[in-house]
C-alpha cells in the first residue's frame, strides 16, 4: 500500500526543485547579474537621486528587494507557466499532492534560493561600503515579501498561459523596478503617482527593508500594504489555481 504524507510530499517537491536549481546554478547567478550591476554602478556613479546618505545605503535594500522580486515572482511565474504548458502540472495533479502543499513547497524552494542570493548581494554591498544596522524586523519583512510574491506568481500563472506568463512577469519586473523605489527614490515622483505606487507590494518591501537595515521600524502604510499582499496573494492563489 502506498503512503505519503503532507510533509513527505512537500519535502520531495522542494528537494527536487532545489536539486535542479543547483544543477542549473549558472542560471541563478545570471538572474543576479542585473541586480549586482545596478548596485555597483549606481553606488559608484552618483547619478540617480538616492536621498541624502551614501548611495549604497539607499541602493542595497532596494536591490535586495529586486532580487526577491526576481526569484519569488519572475522565476516562479515563468517556471509554473512552462510546467503548465508541458502538462507537468496536470501530472502532479494525479498524485496525492494538494494545492496548498504545492504552494508551500514552491515557497520553501524560494526561501532557500533567496537566502543564497541575499548572502551574495549583502557581501557585495558591504564590500563597496554598505554598513547596515540590522533590525529584528528584517527577517519578518523578507518572509512577508516572499509569501506575497510567491502567491502573486501562482496568480499570474493561473490567469495566463505559458508564454504570456513569461511576457507578463518580465514586463511587471521592469515596471516594478522603475516604480517601486528599488533604485529610484519615489519621493521624486509627483504626489499622485506616489499615492499609487505606495499600494504596490514591492514599494512597501523596499521601504521596510530600507528602514530595517537602518534599525528603524518603518512606515505604517508600508506594513499595512505588505501584510495585505502577504495575506491576500496566497488566498487568491489557492482560489484561482487550476491543475490543468
Amino acid at each position: 500500500m502506498n503512503t505519503s504524507t503532507t510533509r513527505s510530499r512537500i519535502i520531495a517537491l522542494a528537494r527536487t526543485d532545489l536539486q535542479v536549481a543547483a544543477r542549473d546554478g549558472e542560471q541563478l547567478l545570471l538572474t543576479l547579474g542585473l541586480p549586482i550591476l545596478l548596485l555597483v554602478f549606481f553606488s559608484k556613479v552618483d547619478i540617480v537621486p538616492t536621498g541624502d546618505g551614501e548611495p549604497v545605503d539607499f541602493l542595497a535594500p532596494g536591490i535586495i528587494s529586486l532580487a526577491l522580486l526576481s526569484v519569488a515572482y519572475v522565476r516562479l511565474a515563468i517556471g509554473l507557466g512552462f510546467d503548465r504548458g508541458f502538462g507537468a502540472i496536470k501530472r502532479l495533479a494525479i498524485t496525492p499532492l494538494r494545492v496548498n502543499e504545492f504552494l508551500v513547497a514552491k515557497l520553501a524552494t524560494t526561501v532557500v534560493l533567496f537566502g543564497v542570493q541575499l548572502v551574495l548581494l549583502a557581501a557585495i554591498a558591504v564590500a563597496i561600503g554598505w554598513r547596515p544596522q540590522v533590525s529584528i524586523s528584517v527577517p519578518v519583512v523578507i518572509m512577508l515579501g516572499l509569501v506575497a510574491f510567491t502567491g502573486l506568481a501562482f496568480v499570474t500563472a493561473s490567469i495566463v498561459d505559458g508564454l504570456t506568463s513569461l511576457a507578463l512577469a518580465n514586463a511587471l519586473y521592469i515596471i516594478l523596478l522603475l516604480l517601486s523605489g528599488l533604485v529610484f527614490d519615489i519621493e521624486k515622483m509627483p504626489g499622485w503617482l506616489q499615492a499609487i505606487v505606495k499600494l504596490l507590494p514591492s514599494t512597501a518591501l523596499a521601504e521596510l527593508l530600507r528602514s530595517g537595515f537602518s534599525d528603524t521600524t518603518g512606515a505604517v502604510w508600508a506594513w499595512l500594504c505588505l501584510s495585505f499582499w502577504a495575506i491576500g496573494a496566497p488566498i487568491l492563489a489557492s482560489r484561482l489555481f487550476r491543475w490543468e
Partner: peptide
C-alpha cells in the same frame, strides 16, 4: 498516464521517478 503529459522542467529520468515515487509514497 495522461496523454502527452510532460514532467516539471529540467528533471532527469531518475529525478522524475524519485519525485513521483515519493509523492505517491511508492513502496
Amino acid at each position: 498516464m495522461p496523454q502527452a503529459g510532460g514532467i516539471p522542467m529540467g528533471l532527469t529520468v531518475g529525478e522524475a521517478v524519485r519525485l513521483f515515487s515519493e509523492l505517491h509514497g511508492y513502496g
